[in-house]
């Protein structure tokens, strides 16, 4: 009887995710344009990636992205959450404001930043240029395009970390905080000795998820730069998408998708090992 209850979920999930995922793994060993019959080519798709300059560029960009998101949103989130814990009054109000960027679609956020901030004619950049600052649209240059996109995603993302960490901090037993205050802890000592250790499981989970999410990043890059200029902001997911739907190299795209998944697997593996370590 209870098996029937989980049947709808499982059918949908297997049909939409598992079966196509298995097909993707198979397709990675074929050459296929999506129309004609697939041709088995062994590891050629992976060999091509190995020799593909753009692939390495995209992989590097994903790693930079991961590094950025492992540091900035987590540090900002921790600081803001700890301050919310300090003031308490108004914490709900601040949380709502910090979540505004999160609830807005990436497409909208991207366009607002492109038009109102980065744009060299209509944006804040243009305004500041007129006051003599040497600024330019970061999306238009190969050296800065990736960071230009990352800033928007960071803006969209850090509030989520702050709210998550604040929720975790509220579960740190009150007496532990009060005891530290009585014993003379400064703000940094409170963070170092009480708050961060107290929410370490949440921080670990968020860092693992950050690694996984960093390899999935798509919307902001696709909408703002399409990976350009000159592939300078290409990431693995936009590259795979382009290979499949623009260049009709589905086998090649499938191989990239497998690389993306591998990073997620490694992160998940580490997480499970950490958890097992804690359980002892």
């Amino acid at each position: 009887m209870y098996r029937l209850f989980i049947l709808p979920t499982m059918i949908i999930n297997i049909a939409v995710i598992s079966i196509p995922a298995i097909l993707t793994i198979i397709l990675a060993f074929y050459r296929w344009d999506g129309i004609s019959d697939p041709v088995f080519i062994g590891l050629e798709n992976f060999e091509r990636l190995w020799n593909d300059r753009i692939f390495w560029k995209a992989l590097r960009n994903n790693l930079i992205w991961t590094a950025l998101f492992l540091t900035f949103p987590i540090i900002i989130g921790l600081v803001v959450a700890s301050l919310l814990l300090t003031v308490r009054r108004g914490s709900t109000f601040f949380q709502i404001i910090y979540l505004f960027p999160l609830v807005i679609s990436a497409v909208i956020s991207a366009r607002v930043w492109q038009g109102m901030i980065y744009n060299p004619q209509s944006g804040i950049v243009a305004l500041l240029e007129r006051y003599g600052l040497d600024l330019y649209d970061p999306l238009s240059r190969t050296a800065t395009a990736l960071y230009g996109v990352a800033v928007v995603d960071l803006w969209h993302w850090w509030g989520f970390m702050a709210v998550i960490f604040f929720a975790a901090l509220r579960q740190v037993p009150q007496e532990q905080i009060e005891a530290a205050r009585l014993e003379g802890a400064t703000y940094f000592q409170m963070m170092r000795w009480v708050l961060i250790p107290g929410i370490m499981p949440t921080i670990t989970l968020m860092m693992i998820m950050t690694v996984i999410w960093s390899f999935l990043v798509f919307d902001f890059v696709y909408v703002m730069t399409q990976g350009g200029p000159a592939s300078s902001s290409e990431v693995l997911s936009t590259m795979a998408y382009r290979r499949a739907f623009y260049e009709l190299k589905v086998g090649n795209a499938a191989a990239i998708a497998i690389v993306i998944s591998l990073f997620g697997l490694v992160a998940t593996f580490f997480y499970l090992r950490l958890q097992r370590g804690e359980g002892e």
Binding site: P173, E175, Q176, E178, R181, E183, V194, P197, M200
Partner: peptide
Amino acid sequence: PKERDVSMVFQNYALYPH
């Protein structure tokens, strides 16, 4: 609190698990 030079024993002991 830290300048009052008092110490307090809490109901739940307030020990740091880590």
